[in-house]
Amino acid sequence: MNTVRDEIMPLQSESDLITVRQAVRIWMVPEGFNILEQTKMVTAVSELARNAITYGGGGEARLQLLADAARRGIRVTIIDHGVGIEDITKAMVDGYSTGSGLGLGLGGSKRLVDEFNIWSEPGQGTRVEITRWKQ
């Protein structure tokens, strides 16, 4: 699999969140993703990026365009350096909350994409990688 395009963007503020959202859509349009596919990916990115800013103290978003013989895709990795998630299995359940009562929306975001991978280490931060393929 080749990475056709690769870019890292800061994720510290509300305006960074908007910039990343817009960039994901702009990257997806020329790849032929339809509006529903764009909306699902952008929404998932928005949920995860908001978590990184709100709970993770900020971080960065890595955007990648991927290509292999059969298909192309977009992958976004959201990285923060916050407190991390102790029990990822629990955190993936809808409505799970860290105490603020808001829930992380991880399970919901997973449903919006083709691939979802999460790594987290208490005290080290969280990395979530989501991918959407265009067949």
Binding site: G105, G108, S109, L112
Partner: peptide
Amino acid sequence: MQPTVAMTTVELGK
């Protein structure tokens, strides 16, 4: 609400 937004929001669980 745009149809694509409605579909996405429901799938998100909201």
